[in-house]
Design a protein around this nucleic acid. Structure first.
Lengths: 205, 205, 205, 205
DNA sequence: GATGAATGAGTGTTCATTCAT
DNA sequence: AATGAATGAACACTCATTCAT
């Protein structure tokens, strides 16, 4: 029952927003009574916190798995991470949207905890970037924090517009983002492109 | 008075969120009574709509100015647009955050109108990109819509974390974003870099 | 309206008790809506506090008047005070019962304030007793605090059983209490005791 | 288990009041579940009734013992009764406070029964006083009912303020009360009464 | 004897909104 | 232009109680 309440709440919070979703809405959807809701959750806010914790903890766990794979370059890790985020939209898109939209309804203590987790995620990404720079995979003339904020902004926003059942495949989206992030959108001059080609060849060999 | 209500509402909606800000909060801040509020606004929602309209219309107007400048390349127009957005954080950050967070509280008709404006902004950007591609300024092997969504995600998110009074200057932020967008973060191989240099020289000449 | 709410609330709190009286009960009695109640009172508890403050402040004011009358002996002042309490049952009996029964529903801060006032009332009575002892009006071999607690217990309980419209007149009740109290705590002179007999004899004849 | 529930309930009802104590509070304190509570008690109100019945029945039984002691004068019986009440504060103070505060939460039938017992206790005391008057132990010019209400008010209130572990010993409290009461209602000796007249005359002049 | 999931009526409270003045 | 008393629907939440196991 607890699980069902969580699931339906996420649905409704995604569809209508936290403040416009009443406990009544939730229990009506499930077909139970108020008492049942409060048997499983102390308050509406605690339910929201639960959703947040579930989401960020799973995300951190998945991030950890990717980061710990020693056979991957930092570039590849970043690619996999973006892929992870995009591919999760289908399964966890609702949670993700709730997570990214409704955290303002948490109280101060809850918010602090969630923001610590958020930061943890960002800092790890930053470290990934930093290591990649040291290894010569990434440029060393950009502020890491800004770059990461930029990448996260770009990728995370997908939750708000990307339809996994639409005409753009997940692969194309991931590849496009990675391409922009790695190479930029500027058209290279001929010579540059040639060399780029060589590099690419050299690289993939 | 109307202006004061708008101003204080934006402040409060930014600080506490739309649903957690009551009319009472607003009028207490200003020091008037309920009747006054309803003399100037039909409803709380109409006030929110007003804020949205003011924001998006001004943004579109400023976009228009930049786009109509025939002395700028598309690359430069994009740079100026990003600069516009970042520099607006100091003056219009509150409005922007309200605009990007609270639109879910508009009713269907209002939301449709706002979304049309939003789309107009995005489509214009997309056209800018498209023209740039035709002129050879930008790569032609990426989907325009995805690229624009990516860029907007990256830049717009700044409203949520960027502190214009912090250690990063607006110029640095704009340049970093433009650099990532145009060139990417991948470290170029020597030969590539050399050619890049040439391009840059060629470019600035 | 505020006054009406106060009045009807006291009635209901006296009749049914604070916790069993709902806001709904109160507004139904008056014929207004919930909003009206909350326009005048921040909460049910604040209403209760208001009742308490009104009651104790008026009581203290009346105590003050009696105490400041310099033409009265301490014995007479005590008599007048008891008379005041008993005679108030008709007009303020409901308030008094609410005051003496429902204070446990106040929160800690409210309760502290009310208890300070309560204590003030008691301490003043104690001073009255102390002065009377010094002037030889009362016995000096009893603890003032206990005596006052005893007197207050005796007199205050009347709110719970005394019916001002019943067969016992207010005068008789006051006189009986004073008689019990005075002839108990009054310093008996040897000679005095002898003469008392004469009166009694004379009286009963 | 039944006993534990009773004990903890009295504790909680004394500390927080009946209406503010939930079944949940009670079972949490004991460490059992709701079912257990309802296995032993039909309802919360029945539990309250149980507490009331236990209390008043024991009190009546103890009253009975004192009253049936044929070696005691009525004066002594009254003294012992007051002593009984005061000394009980240490052991039964919580029950007594619950009994004197929470009876309003009983339903009509329960309340009627409890009030009958209460009355029985009072009437017996009144009879004790009446017999004492006949035997010349107490004054005969005061209404018995009022006197008993007064005495009970005085003594019973002790439950609300008297701390058996404080600086005033139980003996001192009992003696003070008895002193106040007895020397008030006690029939004065001949010689003593004669002198009173003189004082009074002297006084009013 | 004891569990604990589920009930559902009821509670205090909030708040956007109206309207006579 | 502005007031502020009054509305009333909605809300989050509580809690004594039931009952299948």
């Amino acid at each position: 029952m607890r699980g069902r309440i969580l699931k339906e709440s996420i649905d409704l919070f995604d569809k209508k927003g936290f403040s416009k979703t009443s406990i009544q809405d939730i229990i009506d959807t499930i077909g139970v009574t108020k008492g049942t809701f409060y048997y499983y959750f102390k308050s509406k806010q605690e339910l929201l916190m639960d959703i947040h914790l579930n989401y960020i903890k799973e995300l951190l766990a998945e991030q950890e798995v990717i980061f710990n794979d020693e056979y991957l370059s930092n570039k590849e890790k970043m690619n996999n991470l973006i892929s992870l985020i995009i591919k999760n939209i289908k399964i966890h898109g609702k949670s993700a949207r709730v997570f990214n939209r409704e955290f303002r309804h948490l109280d101060d203590n809850q918010l602090k905890l969630i923001n610590d987790y958020r930061k943890e995620f960002r800092i790890k990404l930053q470290k990934l970037l930093g290591e990649g720079i040291e290894k010569g995979e990434f440029r060393d003339d950009l502020r890491c924090d800004i770059v990461i904020f930029g990448i996260l902004g770009m990728v995370n926003r997908s939750y708000n517009w990307y339809d996994p059942d639409g005409e753009v495949s997940e692969e194309e989206l991931v590849n496009t983002y990675m391409d922009i992030i790695l190479n930029g959108i500027k058209k290279e001059e001929k010579t540059a492109l040639i060399n780029e080609k060589i590099i690419e060849n050299h690289f993939t060999v």
